[in-house]
């Protein structure tokens, strides 16, 4: 049964349900990057919904579970499952010019998750604030790592910047909007359970009963 966050209660660790949520959202990122593909003429990178998944996981699950979902997705992709945009995978993506974008997804998920946790503390997810959070985490953080990296790989910062902007920016803005719209709708449709199990400070002994 879904539980709603109780005010004034601390949550610690991760429950079995949290592990399942991490796995299911890592799978969602994988499915979004493989299924939702739109080939762009002359561009090596198809537009995919991959970054939508990267923004949605922390926006819905918070920083801990969201960043872990992204990390699990990365681990499976780097281990050789064809999960990245365009059906590629394996260690080669870390050697390519776009590697910085992929590496940045974990800090991006942390930032989106932390800011969303603050944002939803009042119990509501507001679209405009959510959009701002997605742009800060999903675009500013990602580009802050990805663009200089591409600049180094391509031998020139300006060239890297230009390529990144032309190839990724329009799609990423659209996906930041979509992620905020989806998150706002999901928060109204389903009581997203908090991560971890409630801990009552005075009664710490009771939680350790049969562990």
């Amino acid at each position: 049964m879904p539980t709603t966050r109780m005010p004034g209660v601390r949550y610690r660790g991760l429950t079995a349900r949290d592990l399942a949520l991490i796995a299911v959202f890592a799978a969602l990122i994988a499915v979004l990057s493989v299924s939702g593909q739109i080939a762009v003429p002359l561009s090596p990178v198809p537009i995919t919904l991959q970054t939508l998944g990267i923004m949605l996981a922390p926006a819905l699950l918070g920083w801990k579970r969201g960043a872990l979902a992204v990390a699990v997705f990365l681990a499976l992709g780097l281990a050789g499952l064809p999960l990245f945009a365009g059906g590629v995978g394996g260690l080669a993506v870390l050697a390519g010019p776009s590697a910085g974008f992929i590496v940045s997804w974990i800090p991006a998920a942390l930032v989106i998750g932390l800011l969303t946790d603050l944002l939803t503390r009042g119990g509501r997810y507001r679209f405009w604030a959510g959009l701002g959070v997605n742009i800060v985490g999903g675009i500013l953080v990602v580009y802050a790592v990805g663009v200089p990296w591409m600049g180094v790989a391509m031998g020139d910062g300006l060239l890297g910047l230009f390529t990144a902007m032309a190839v990724y920016l329009p799609g990423d803005l659209a996906k930041a909007v979509a992620a905020a719209l989806i998150a706002a709708a999901v928060y109204r449709a389903y009581p997203v359970p908090p991560a971890g199990r409630p801990v009552i400070e005075e009664d710490a002994a009771a939680t350790g009963e049969d562990a």
Binding site: P2, R17, A20, L52, L56, I182, A185, V186, V192
Partner: peptide, 21 residues
């Protein structure tokens, strides 16, 4: 398209709930 993803995600939450159980 967000009307496509929202019900999907609600379904994923249920799936995770059952898996955790």
């Amino acid at each position: 398209p967000y009307l496509l993803v929202t019900p999907l995600i609600v379904q994923l939450f249920r799936m995770a709930e059952a898996t955790g159980e």
